[in-house]
Design a protein around this nucleic acid. Sequence first.
DNA 1: GTTAAAACGGTAAACGATTACAGTAGTTTT
DNA 2: AAAACTACTGTAATCGTTTACCGTTTTAAC
Lengths: 354, 354
Amino acid sequence: MNNGSIPTMAEVAARAGVSIATVSRYLNGIKIKPKLVDKVKKAIDELDYKPNQAARSIRGSRSHTIGMILPQLEHPYFSAVLEGATQEARKHDQTILVASSQGKRDIEHQIIHQFSRSIIDGLIYTPVATGDSFIEEDSFRNLPVIITGRSPSVYPEFNHVFQNTRAGGYLSTNYLLSLGHKKIAFFASFWEPICESNSIMECLTLPGAGVYSSLERFRGYLDALKEADVEYDSNLVVICSYGFKDGQQAARDLLSRCIAFDAIVTASDTVACGVINTLRAQGIQIPSDVSILGYGNLEIGSIITPQLTSIHQDMFALGVESVKAFNALLNGEALSNKILDVKLVVRDSTSKKL
Amino acid sequence: MNNGSIPTMAEVAARAGVSIATVSRYLNGIKIKPKLVDKVKKAIDELDYKPNQAARSIRGSRSHTIGMILPQLEHPYFSAVLEGATQEARKHDQTILVASSQGKRDIEHQIIHQFSRSIIDGLIYTPVATGDSFIEEDSFRNLPVIITGRSPSVYPEFNHVFQNTRAGGYLSTNYLLSLGHKKIAFFASFWEPICESNSIMECLTLPGAGVYSSLERFRGYLDALKEADVEYDSNLVVICSYGFKDGQQAARDLLSRCIAFDAIVTASDTVACGVINTLRAQGIQIPSDVSILGYGNLEIGSIITPQLTSIHQDMFALGVESVKAFNALLNGEALSNKILDVKLVVRDSTSKKL
DNA sequence: GTTAAAACGGTAAACGATTACAGTAGTTTT
DNA sequence: AAAACTACTGTAATCGTTTACCGTTTTAAC
């Protein structure tokens, strides 16, 4: 019987001298006689009994496991989301089954397939930011799904929790305008090349535009320009990826265009570091000659000199809120999309236009 | 029947005109007649049938899920391990159930408890680096466990996959010695205060010493000093935590001791950044006055000026190797501890002693 | 063509829980 | 004191698989 192996409910019941139904009821919070409660509790303790989740799940009850698909795990953005999600999940005695789609559509697809056979109550999902990220019908077998960190335009049928990236673009630009800058360059970042031949303006009208955070930021940039009656100049837009070297390259790109600019809005603090590095190498002073705005408020922004002015977005909170929204959905509560605010953090990489 | 709900094996069997045992055997790679294979395959396709993992696990077969406990997820070190582990797991059609112990013993304990009720085939586990991290008997219900990123001394009964941190300490120190430095300060980092009243020397003899990577590095530091016949000076040791500010503080600490030093070995690139920041503010030139060595070879090391000389450790590989070791263990293969090499990456924060 | 052996398929009994249903106390009502 | 509830508890069916066991078919051997 109790041959060192894992105890079952039947053994608990036998030891407590009750039926297994009683044990089950006790564990599920259904009222049983206090006298029996004690006996059951004692038996569970003595055997160190832990219910078998697999057996529970087979009857369709909750598995207390949430699937989570993120485009990467190494980026501080996503690891903070994950940390927030796991911590919130633990509060509800849930666990997170995690996978990285590595920013690739086909891997994402594989993962969805893999997860659909796993024991999860549903999914918290950040679709890859590539134009072809569309969810096939029935992929999720009507599991509850929360989409995290993407604007709701692309998948209107799902519930979303996301940062107000458009507002982030607006805040950046508006702040620079308030400092007197007029020629504000916009560095858009994409993980993969997008709309090769098209202008960024045209990209805005693509059906999947909402998955690209840089496009959201760009909308905010346009909002601010319009509000301030500053004309949009497509020559001030540079497209690059998200790394340090990409920032360096993008800065070189802009310099090679030989047009005047007095500030740059970037899509990430890492890119901003690259930009600063290149501009300085050309003898351009930050912020006196050019103001630079980062995005994300990563640790690096307060390590480098000058410290970066940036847009702070609370990724940890995004993870927490996603789990909360997920559980609300699971409990059948009506819920609407949740937008998290971003805020401007002023440091030393921006200054008044002289 | 097929009311839009999830199809079961029985439905597949019915549609294929075979018994459910045959379907099961097909799915488990047991040979059945080619004729039936086709019929079953067709039925599975048509119904888009996916086996129910919960039902499978109940019979004790593999769940293809690996539990993973890490002290944090936001640190680039651990997120790289996780990324490596998830990618390797996916290759074997496994998934990772992840939790962060937040560097706290009690949370770690809760997670182990929580995981022991979950459907996992075993655990890849990085114990928190605090002196009280000891695994209780029977915590894992004889699940297979791989310990990752810690030296094997503390938990000799488990299998380990870890970086050769002692070699890292040796490489750093040896390199500085080869540049002609003699007064090499050692900055030890701990997530939590350790051995309050004791010297670091005494800490080495603590029973749980192996979980502290800085202690391993320190051993390497001593190895190198001894080899070069340079006398150890306890005044050159500073204890701090792992952050940028901790590096700043530690540098101030050292300066306040008013003793000569010509190089510093740190426990992390982030700390090294703080050190550089403080020293420079005091008019000390890096590397001409003092050489600084980071640890970990994080992205930030090649962003700041001067770019950091550092010890590279492949955390992604650590994750990959951990999963490999785990699967070997699961398959009953005899295996020994796996040590991953680290290597010195020379950049601009170190130079010859003038 | 008969017989023995091998290969495979089907039936049914697990696995460890949840839960409908029926049964047995104990309590209240008349 | 009998009847009608109430409040539990226990029995057994059930979830979707795997797998031992037995029976049938196929193949090989003579």
